[in-house]
Amino acid sequence: MFDVIGRNFVFLMGGLLTTFELAILALAGGIGLGMLVGLARLSKNPWIYYPITAYVNLLRNIPLILVIFWFYFVMPIITGDAMAPFPAAVIAFVIFEATYFGEIFRAGYQTISKDLTAAAFSTGMTYSQTARYILIPIAFKRMAPSLITQSIVTFQDTSLAFVIGLTELVRRSSIVDNMEVRSIELYGFAAFVYFIVCYTGSQISLYYENKAREVNLI
């Protein structure tokens, strides 16, 4: 029954590779930009705070599919050239996911109390020592579960690049399905692959969450 998977295995796995490539670039860019967005959302400078807040609120209210389309339409106008689906998708994902990661970082930065910093200073540590040994480790441990969860969401989101013709796992499954009409096996297989990756990720997230809870970090 699953011969259709076997026959097209290399083709499908090529799609999974594209899925991973897009996910890794989206995560690297999204987390990097998100760190800055998180800082900007705590900025006291109105010229930074308001534009970034508007950007975050706008994107968080819009479906990702629409954002992907929008970038797909706008990029050729900026570059003057038709754009391949992959770079268009990377740009859309980085700009979109950065708003979600930004809110996680903002919350993470905020949970560190002033008194904790004061306590560290009172033992004679410098600011950079305090940041390095106290603030950053705590913030990261606290944020780790949310960061992993959002990374899983991003990984799943990459399937939406389907709509601009990126031949990732879902698109390739649908290409094979159009020829062979074996929807149960093909979409079942795609679901299974996503499940394995995401379930593993969610168990890792749970592990970090429990670890953080054990030491009363949450």
Binding site: L160, V170, S183, I184, A190, A191, F195
Partner: peptide, 16 residues
């Protein structure tokens, strides 16, 4: 349900 992308779920329900 939460570890499979919604798009894949939709395709599965609709086609399969």
């Amino acid at each position: 349900f939460r570890n499979i992308p919604l798009l894949v779920q939709m395709f599965f329900w609709f086609y399969a």
